[in-house]
Nucleic acid binder design. Structure first.
Ligand code: MN
Ligand code: MN
Ligand code: ZN
Ligand code: ZN
Lengths: 136, 136
DNA sequence: TAGTTAATAGGAATCATTCCTATTCTTAAG
DNA sequence: CTTAAGAATAGGAATGATTCCTATTAACTA
């Protein structure tokens, strides 16, 4: 719907991507909107969503669904998995090796009748600060 | 909010759980509602949601978020992972071994400052019928 | 510089999910 | 068996993230 034709450059979209590349906080559309509305006084939330969608289709960012009522986004970089804190809803990047997941993906594509292009591994539990708080 | 006190039995909730245990289709709340409204003519969608929530808190079922705009549910059983079809939105159970994921979970809990209670592994791509359709 | 067309702002609309409350059912006394 | 207490439900309103629509603005091109 949005892609297919030639994309024109857009300062807003460029800044959204820059923001996502500069943080490891897995922001929401509303957070991005808040960050940029000083810089673009006429920015609209709908346009943030539209550009996030375009960036996802371009493969520059990924949408992270689940864990809460709103979606989060992150720039595409080194493959990694996440810990979703069930207490404070934080999403933390993990540095676990992804080789096991890659092997499973290959195995799935070899044997099965499916075609998997990517995998997502998430752990659910408590983040560092919430583990600490648990000892009262 | 709902749990904590003693739960009373409920025919509706029992049937919801039965339905989820009898299918591998990862149904939505609306689908469950459609299935049961003949049996319970006065059933309300809100009550389906309320009971799904209770069943999740009881650990009898799991909510599957992501892949589409509505949540899906499945009965808790043998641990497995899913293939999410990006073409038709189907969610397919996979029989890949989960040992690698269990090892990663242990590893995470040993070294890191986190506490992970469960993991979720999902593959994204094409389901069997959508792979077949691709050869036109 | 003017024309063409994509990108945007603003706001309405969507829709899955949650929330609220009067009513109905379940259960355990009496 | 009858009844009182309170849990579960139905129905519908409310919520809120996301999408959709359209007039306006801005970027590229000739
Ligand atoms: Mn991340
Ligand atoms: Mn499943
Ligand atoms: Zn936390
Ligand atoms: Zn499919």
């Amino acid at each position: 719907m949005t892609t297919g034709g030639k994309l024109r450059s857009s300062k807003q979209r460029d800044r959204i991507l820059e923001l996502l590349r500069a943080t490891d906080e897995h922001p929401t559309a509303a957070w991005i909107y808040d960050q940029l509305k000083a810089e673009f006084p006429r920015l609209s939330l709908g346009n943030v969503y539209r550009n996030l969608h375009i960036l996802v289709e371009q493969g520059a960012i990924e949408k992270i669904e689940g864990g809460s009522t709103f979606d989060r986004y992150e720039a595409v970089g080194t493959p990694h998995c996440h810990l979703v804190c069930e207490s404070c809803d934080a999403i933390v990047d993990l540095e676990l090796p992804m080789s096991a997941v890659e092997e499973l993906t290959e195995r799935l594509n070899e044997n099965g009748p499916y075609r998997a292009t990517r995998a997502r591994l998430e752990f659910y539990g408590l983040c560092e600060s919430c583990v600490a708080e648990e000892q009262d």
